[in-house]
Structures are given as C-alpha cells and as structure tokens.
C-alpha cells in the first residue's frame, strides 16, 4: 500500500459490461465491473482464461469500448469517445507492454521506443532524447541501435517497457508481460516493474501466474466476468 503518497483516483470503473456476439447468442465477457485504482498503485489482475481479465484490460487500455457502464481515466469519461479521441488517450495516458513484445522487426530498439512519440507532437531531436532516456531507465542504453532479432527475449521486453514509458503515461498496462519469458528473465522484468512502481509509476498487469502477481501490491481476481476478490498484498513482500 502506498498510503504515504497523496494518491488520487486514476481509474474509476462503474458497472462496466461487455458482451460478444457468438452466432445468435450474447455472451457476457464482463458483467458489471466496479473498480477504482489510485495513482501509483501496482495492481495485478488475475484469472483463468475466459474470466474476462483480457477484456477488462482492453477496456482499461482504451483499445475497446464497453457496452454499458462508465470508465473514467484521470477524471475523463472515455465511454463515448471516437476512435480518434481514444487513440489520443492511448498515446498520452497509456503505455502498453504485450506478451509477445510487438516490436517492429526492421527498426532499431531506439526507433521502436520512439514510435509512440511519432504520433504525438514531439520534434525529432526531442524524440531521440526521450527515447534514449527511456532506454536508460530500463538499462538498455547500449543496445539502442540493435534490431529486435539481435536482442534476447528479456531485452526485447525491456525495449517494449521503454516504449511504454517514453510518453510518460499515467498508466502502464502489461498483458502477461512474462508469458514468453523463462522464469529467470521474468524475475528481471518484475524487478524492473517494482523499480518503476517505486519511482511512482501506476502499473496494471494481467497475469495468470500467481508468483508473478505476487510482485504487485494489490491483486484483483476475476471469474466469469466479475471481480471475485480484491485484496492488498502484504507490503514489502519481496519474493
């Protein structure tokens, strides 16, 4: 718990539902989610496949739209935004880390990290500088000019984290960030996340692995499209 910091509500989710059409049927992926997340929290969302955790993740990341309910990010209601406005929110407020890294293979690590800034109003030189700083934060400055295929899995994910951080987002969203990594490398990434958390970064991480989730300070468990449990982890429980 980070009660010591003056924390405000970053995410306010009310009665969020999301359904999918499967043939003629409507399948509920989310059935009325209520969730508040404060600034500087490190939250893990857990659940089995089909529990709705990925759907929730997509909604929190403004990649998808809910059928009903509201989602406020930093006090702004995103429910009725256009695709273009959502893109702007993603660009300015959210950094993504994916399970399979999603680095563009032909670009250097630096170029990959620069990518979000290309879509915001940042000049070329400043882009370079910010990207380099982000790479330094994840400890990969010396690999800046390597292509993704010259990097190890852990390094790739670090580049992806740097890309997520480069725009100074209010929220870092990680979707199974260690899913494609061995346990030793996973540990390294988790330590990076903890470091970022200590630096004040709000992180939401979706995972199905309990030992990865254990790094978070709060664990939200999901089942059948609903929040099943929401508990604070004991502070300082470094695995």
């Amino acid at each position: 718990m980070s009660n010591t910091l003056a924390s405000s509500i970053l995410i306010r989710v009310r009665n969020l539902t999301r359904t999918y059409k499967v043939g003629a049927d409507r399948v509920y992926a989310l059935r009325g989610i209520n969730l508040d997340i404060k600034t500087n929290e490190f939250v893990a969302i857990m659940g089995h496949s089909g529990s709705g955790k990925s759907t929730l993740m997509n909604l929190l990341g403004c990649l998808d739209r809910a059928d009903s309910g509201t989602y406020e990010l930093n006090g702004i209601d995103t429910t009725k935004m256009t695709a273009s406005q959502l893109a702007h929110i993603r660009n300015q407020q959210i950094g993504f880390v994916f399970q399979s890294f999603e680095l563009l293979p032909r670009m250097s690590a630096l170029k990959n990290v620069e990518l979000p800034l290309i879509y915001s109003d940042v000049s070329f030189l400043r882009r370079r500088k910010l990207a380099m700083q982000a790479l330094e934060r994840v400890g990969l400055a010396e690999r800046a000019h390597h292509k993704p295929n010259q990097l190890s899995g852990g390094e790739k994910q670090r580049v992806a984290v740097a890309r997520a951080l480069v725009g100074s987002p209010s929220l870092l969203l990680a979707d199974e960030p260690t899913g494609n990594l061995d346990s030793k490398t996973s540990e390294g990434i988790m330590q990076l996340f903890e470091k970022l958390h200590q630096e004040g970064q709000t992180i939401i991480m979706v995972t199905h692995e309990a030992d990865i989730a254990a790094h978070a300070r709060r664990i939200v468990a999901m089942k059948d499209g609903q929040i099943f449990s929401d508990q604070q982890a004991s502070k300082g429980a470094d695995a």
């Binding site: 893109a87 993504f96 999603e102 915001s120």
Partner: peptide, 9 residues
Amino acid sequence: LRKAVGAKP
C-alpha cells in the same frame, strides 16, 4: 501496435 501506441485512423 501502431494504433495501440496512439496512431489515429
């Protein structure tokens, strides 16, 4: 990916 990091349509 480009869309996820903020590329508008």
